[in-house]
Design a protein around this nucleic acid. Structure first.
Ligand SMILES: NC(=O)c1ccc[n+]([C@@H]2O[C@H](COP(=O)([O-])OP(=O)(O)OC[C@H]3O[C@@H](n4cnc5c(N)ncnc54)[C@H](O)[C@@H]3O)[C@@H](O)[C@H]2O)c1
Ligand SMILES: NC(=O)c1ccc[n+]([C@@H]2O[C@H](COP(=O)([O-])OP(=O)(O)OC[C@H]3O[C@@H](n4cnc5c(N)ncnc54)[C@H](O)[C@@H]3O)[C@@H](O)[C@H]2O)c1
Lengths: 267, 267
DNA sequence: TCAACTTTGTGCAAGCGTTCACAAGCGGTA
DNA sequence: TACCGCTTGTGAACGCTTGCACAAAGTTGA
């Protein structure tokens, strides 16, 4: 079973856990034209991929503001990273900058989109149309970024046929046919935790190979399926850890009566 | 400004970006009793903290099932990690296992809770009671894990006073007084992206030092504030990247007519 | 054309995090 | 008590990620 990644791995983490759990044994390929692109894509570190998505969002904003050129320093500032890291990240996808000038925003956007596979459409299915499922189905941020929500599923017969965010809910039992019909490539699990593994299994047998899981459970999937998880309780607990650590530090400083300079708990 | 961590960095996380951007200069503390606990807490890698939260969830399930003792191998399986990693993670918080036997589930639970700071209560405020905010306010998983939702805020006057999930929504202008009154320690941002930085600034001046951000923006905060972000579009794009990579590999293999054995795209 | 200046792309070293592998320690058994 | 089998805890090696620092490569202006 493949390990799943997410948040802090923050993360998160990712996240966060980042070993590319044997998606495939390295087949020595040696075709001519697309080979370098493939090799390159394969070589991009997971951490860099996550940041590329962030750069893409920032750059899209820049395009809308009419910015045509940007330096690594500026982009790094806007994305909240070190500029050396940014340049290294961009170097994984090729050399598209101009020394002395910076990067052409549109060129960069199109190359990042290419690397992230955003030139294809990725239809999304949401399973579990409860509180969270409703929010996801209504969320405009998915379709606008190339991830149209194409199907909704629930086990509750009262929901079947009811349109949410413009799409009628299908019964979970129809998952295989509907997913095939609408070419769903990403499944989102928003069911109660008890149902998550079963739903996951059904998604996998329906041919879905990418899963985003909101249920607080560790899903078991075959190696060829990619799972990412979003676990809000875990996020909260990481924040809690930092609160505790900071409180302990403060307590220690008070005990010592030292009052370490530079530490500002609340300025 | 502190960098913010989240997802995958995954693995996330990171999850992902994981450098402890100078929350404080290392003050050399040397008090006696609690010093080792503090030193230890400080030394736990972020990635390990995220996993400890997962172990805790799994262990809580075990307690309910009446399991009293568990080996690293079993727990690792249930948490989806390698058993060596699990043991190392647990070693960061101390030596509470019994060689030849395993770990006492309840002992482990209480120590992880202590390290994660879950012995204190962490009140949560949600800002932006729209689609997502409603789901979060109604989510039972927060209070049940020691994160009571104590306040809700929105800018929409029509929402003010309306109870959501049992708590009446307050106007964003009252954020400082209400947060102080209810001792809010974690702020959750679920507003549109345009409003996120302003909301973040208000949370920070209200004394909130931990922020969980759902808006797709990079927040700028002072060093002493801890930000974690949940960015669903980024998660989707990471999944998309893997689809693309896999498709490229498959294409390459087909071009070569090799058909690398062991690669199962869809079994 | 040339020099001064700006910014990219990257080799390299240091720092983390993961994994291996095994000694140390514990419980059970004869 | 002495032995055996099992499981923990961790030193050490490895590999990924980060950040520095600088040569290479471009622009601008004279
Ligand atoms: N609400 C939140 O803000 C939030 C936050 C974080 C995580 N989560 C997690 O997301 C999941 C959903 O949360 P929610 O608050 O929307 O719960 P919910 O109870 O409101 O909704 C769950 C939905 O799933 C459906 N369902 C149940 N079993 C199913 C099955 N086998 N197949 C298909 N559908 C099924 C139910 O009919 C219901 O409509 C939970 O696992 C929860 O822990 C929720
Ligand atoms: N809905 C989702 O499933 C989803 C998923 C991922 C990310 N997000 C992100 O979460 C955020 C919220 O999404 P949503 O779908 O709930 O949006 P929404 O429009 O339904 O809700 C936003 C709410 O924020 C309130 N608001 C606006 N400005 C405010 C301010 N200055 N102070 C306080 N409140 C303010 C609005 O009145 C509204 O109630 C967005 O940034 C979105 O990108 C949403």
């Amino acid at each position: 079973m493949a390990a799943q990644r997410g948040e802090g791995d923050g993360v998160v983490t990712r996240p966060q856990g980042t070993s590319p759990a044997g998606t495939s044994p390295q087949g020595t390929t040696n075709s001519e034209a697309p080979a370098d692109v493939r090799e390159r894509a394969r070589a991009i570190p997971e951490a860099a991929v996550a940041r590329l998505a962030v750069y893409l969002r920032v750059l899209s904003g820049m395009v809308e503001q009419g910015v045509t050129t940007i330096s690594s320093e500026e982009l790094a500032g806007a994305a909240g990273v070190n500029s050396a890291k940014l340049r290294k990240d961009l170097s994984y996808i090729g050399s598209y900058g101009t020394r002395g000038v910076g990067y052409d925003v549109e060129v960069l956007v199109s190359h990042i989109e290419r690397i992230l596979g955003l030139t294809r459409k990725h239809s999304v299915a949401v399973v579990g149309i409860g509180n969270l499922g409703h929010a996801l189905a209504n969320y405009g941020g998915f379709p606008s970024r190339g991830f149209p929500v194409a199907a909704l599923f629930d086990i509750d017969p009262d929901l079947t046929g009811v349109p949410v965010g413009g799409i009628p809910v299908d019964h979970i039992d129809d998952i295989t046919t509907v997913c095939a019909e609408r070419e769903v490539s990403i499944g989102v699990i928003a069911t109660p935790p008890q149902a998550a593994q079963a739903v996951c299994d059904r998604l996998v047998s329906a041919g879905v190979q990418c899963i985003l899981n909101f249920a607080p459970v560790v899903l078991q999937v075959p190696d060829y399926v990619e799972v990412r998880k979003v676990d809000l309780a875990v996020e909260m607990q990481i924040l809690s850890f930092h609160v505790a650590r900071r409180a302990d530090e403060a307590a220690g400083d008070v005990v010592n009566g030292i009052g370490v300079d530079g530490v500002v708990i609340r300025p």
